[in-house]
Amino acid sequence: MKSSFSLIGEQLALFRGDRLLFKQCNFDLSNGETLQIKGENGAGKTSLLRMICGFLDPDEGKLNFNQTSLLKDRSEFYQQTLYLGHQLGIKSNLTVAENLAFYIEINGASQRCDISEAVDKVGLAGFENQLVAHLSQGQKRRVTLARLLLEEAVLWILDEPFVALDVKGQHWLQNTLGEHAKAGGGIILTSHQAIELEVPIKSLTLQGGGQ
């Protein structure tokens, strides 16, 4: 069973330069829930995710994780979350297995399955000892997705996880997301495509200059 968590954003507003990206943005998320952030290009979807992850400060509003403000303390938040962004965060000079092993080790959390098993499941069987530099864009994406299977995190924060995946890969990812939600995990993701999970999906639409 996943540990319980709650993430609440209240009246969040964010400016980039002097342009208002969004304001009065409210959401809440707890175990078993999925939140899809929608909006046009430039509406601030990635910025909202980066804000939740602590790489941008909101100009207004509150952000609480398990009743503590994320603006003050993030140690617990970092332990329980896994963020996959546009930049993959894998080194092209390391092999697939080395990249994954590093993240398991640095996170210090328990490992959910064997690296080879996870690599198999994301469809990269046989590529374990290949340098990431030799992989295609979609395969690199799959390497990062293998982290979802390996690391113990309750809350997944995914920025456009379906990009560069083929149809089979997209199908697999939807199933994986569904299983995670059913097991009590939380998911925040941005995506332009319609997602079908077996669990209900909350949605949050960002529009220029307000919600």
Binding site: G54, Y83, Q87
Partner: peptide
């Protein structure tokens, strides 16, 4: 720069390092 450009730095910080 390599760690910055490929997003590893963000991942390291998110790992609580």
């Amino acid at each position: 720069r390599d760690d910055f450009d490929d997003g590893s730095l963000v991942q390291l910080l998110m790992a609580g390092v």
